[in-house]
């Protein structure tokens, strides 16, 4: 009986392990190695030391990508931490028909970013619905160039990311809200605390750790933004490619016409460091929470 346990686990594990090694671990190690070479899609690849990394430091395209990606996180993360929580509070109570609303609010999560991006491209175009509403309300005179101005384009993409993410984080918050003791709310109500006061003093502290988690998930997702930018700018990343994000640039450099695999690998590792950085920040904050 014991003897067969030497090979049986490996038989069961074989397919999953093969995929993990061939398509994840292997390529990761390969990325590490390639980042120190001048490899291209055509081949080659001599060891060039830290040349790629040095080149990154003086590459304006790289810095534009990093800046946009970080800006993305700075705007999107707070919105994704707060808005879905408000939404969860709104649909938490068991009103007639509330299940229907929950489902509808989740439906953008199910749709592909390509679909969502194309829908919003239309809504945000110069004669699209958003500009029409803004003009009807006399907020703007001329239609805003949501899709052709670099900053506005980036802002539009952020809006789409938040819009599509709301439902997902709402469901995460709903689970957390269920763990906030109901009797605290009742006690506060007896003491005459209003809705806003109870949200601030009971709900917020109750979902604190979930908020941190949502913040981390949102930050990691922001680092990986690609489809929004690609679809909404029709593959151009805006005028002069100025609305590019890191993943957009990695794809363009590594898999585009020039196929600078080595250089793209160095950029990929920069992306990895950013992503891991957020996870470490998160773990730090969690540890501080616990020692408080």
């Amino acid at each position: 009986m014991k003897a067969q346990y030497r090979w049986l686990p490996w038989v069961f594990l074989a397919p999953a392990l093969a995929i993990a090694l061939i398509f994840h671990i292997g390529p990761f190690l390969n990325t590490l190695v390639l980042s120190f070479t001048d490899a291209t899609t055509l081949g080659g690849g001599t060891f060039t030391g830290v040349e790629n990394y040095a080149a990154l430091l003086s590459d304006p395209q790289f810095w534009t990508s990093v800046r946009n990606t970080l800006l993305y996180a700075v705007v999107v993360v707070p919105l994704l931490m707060l808005l879905p929580l408000l939404l969860a509070v709104l649909v938490e109570k068991n009103l007639p028909g509330i299940g229907f609303f929950r489902s509808v609010f989740y439906s953008p999560v199910v749709a592909s970013m390509v679909v969502v991006g194309l829908i919003w491209t239309w809504l945000l175009s110069s004669d699209g619905a958003v500009n029409r509403v803004l003009q009807a309300l006399r907020i703007v005179q001329e239609p805003l160039p949501f899709l052709t101005d670099t900053s506005l384009l980036l802002f539009s993409c952020m809006l789409v990311t938040v819009w599509k993410g709301l439902g997902y984080y709402m469901v995460i918050y709903l689970a957390a809200l269920g763990n906030v003791p109901q009797h605290l709310h009742e006690a506060a109500q007896v003491d005459g605390a209003g809705g806003a006061r109870r949200f601030w003093s009971i709900t917020l502290p109750g979902v604190r750790s979930t908020m941190f988690l949502v913040g981390l998930l949102g930050a990691i997702a922001s680092m990986k933004v690609f489809a929004e930018i690609f679809v909404i700018s029709s593959g151009t990343a805006g005028p002069g490619g100025q609305a590019r994000t890191l993943v957009y640039t990695i794809r363009e450099v590594g898999l585009g016409l020039s196929g600078e695999i080595g250089y793209a690998s160095a950029m990929s590792l920069a992306l990895f460091v950013l992503t891991i950085g957020f996870s470490i920040l998160y773990l730090r904050s969690q540890r501080m929470e616990q020692t408080r």
């Binding site: 390969n30 990325t31 990895f272």
Partner: peptide
């Protein structure tokens, strides 16, 4: 932990 976007080129 390793995002697919990081290893995409090598994959």
């Amino acid at each position: 932990i390793i995002p697919f976007e990081v290893i995409m080129v090598s994959v």
